[in-house]
C-alpha cells in the first residue's frame, strides 16, 4: 500500500445528538475524492456492496446526500469464523455551492464506486473578470 498514513478501517457516520437510527445497523461514511476543475466538480465515493438499485442520491436545498443500502450476503449455510470488517449501509452529505448546475448532475456506479459529476452553472463560468494592469 502506498497510502500507509491513511486509516483504512471503515468510519461510522455520525448522527445528531439525541437522535437514534430506526434500523439497528451500522452506517458508515464512505471515503470520497473530490476534484474541481473549470467545468465541473467530480465526486468519487467507495461504496462496496452498493449498486444502482440500492443507491439513493437526493438534493435538497444545496445539500446532496448519498445513501447506499448494503444487503448482507451471508454465504449459504456458513457462519462467520473470523471477521475484520463490518457490513453496513453508507451515508454522507455535502453542501454544494450554488454555482452547481443542478439540472445536469450525473451519477454512475460501477463495481462499488460512485462517480458524481456536478457541472458548474453557465453564469459562473462567464463571470470571470479580466484584470488589466493600471
Amino acid at each position: 500500500m502506498t497510502d500507509t498514513d491513511k486509516d483504512l478501517a471503515k468510519k461510522e457516520a455520525g448522527v445528531p445528538a439525541g437522535v437514534e437510527r430506526t434500523k439497528p445497523r451500522k452506517v458508515f461514511k464512505p471515503d470520497v475524492d473530490i476534484i474541481e476543475d473549470k467545468e465541473e466538480t467530480v465526486l468519487t465515493a467507495d461504496l462496496p456492496g452498493v449498486d444502482e438499485k440500492s443507491l439513493d442520491i437526493t438534493l435538497e436545498k444545496n445539500v446532496i446526500t448519498i445513501r447506499g443500502r448494503v444487503e448482507t450476503e451471508i454465504p449459504a449455510g456458513c457462519r462467520l469464523a473470523y471477521g475484520e470488517y463490518e457490513i453496513g449501509d453508507y451515508e454522507r452529505a455535502f453542501s454544494l455551492s450554488d454555482e452547481v448546475d443542478k439540472e445536469k448532475i450525473q451519477a454512475t456506479i460501477k463495481s462499488g464506486v460512485l462517480k458524481l459529476v456536478l457541472p458548474k452553472a453557465a453564469a459562473v463560468k462567464a463571470r470571470k473578470i479580466a484584470i488589466t494592469a493600471a
Partner: peptide, 30 residues
C-alpha cells in the same frame, strides 16, 4: 464482530461451513 484492528490490507471476513471457507473482502473499483 470484529477481530482486533489490524494494519493488514485488505480487511477480510472468513465464513466457514464444514468443508469450505468463503473469504470476502471489499475492493471497490478493482
Amino acid at each position: 464482530l470484529l477481530a482486533p484492528s489490524t494494519n493488514e490490507f485488505p480487511l477480510v471476513n472468513v465464513w466457514m461451513d464444514g468443508d469450505r471457507a468463503v473469504v470476502t473482502t471489499e475492493l471497490p473499483g478493482v
